[in-house]
């Protein structure tokens, strides 16, 4: 059972499992680094928009980038809370 990113608890680490979006949107998310298998930390959780970051542990970048995803977008990214 995967939960939408919008529902993931604040401060949790999640693994992106599925992106339920058309090719355009999936591509846009991928360009920004959100794709299947990526580990994210939920900095601010919903309801409403969420902020996620690419944590040290999961990625190469020592400076974790931060992204805002609107609620609609965050509902389309399905994650597993790890």
């Amino acid at each position: 059972m995967y939960a939408p990113l919008a529902m993931a608890p604040e401060g949790s680490y999640v693994v992106v499992e599925e992106i339920r979006a058309g090719p355009g949107l999936a591509r846009r998310l991928a360009e920004l680094g959100i794709m299947k298998g990526v580990v994210l930390r939920v900095v601010k959780s919903g309801p409403g928009p969420v902020i996620v970051e690419r944590p040290l542990e999961g990625g190469s970048s020592p400076s974790p980038w931060r992204l805002v995803l609107g609620l609609g977008m965050a509902m389309k990214v399905l994650v597993r809370v790890s």
Binding site: G24, L25, R28, L29, L32, P49, I51, S63, W65, R66, L67, V68, L69, G70, G72, M73, K76
Partner: peptide, 12 residues
């Protein structure tokens, strides 16, 4: 129609 949603970088 649905909004393609909102995604934005938060720069340092």
């Amino acid at each position: 129609g649905p909004s393609t949603g909102f995604i934005m970088e938060l720069p340092p």
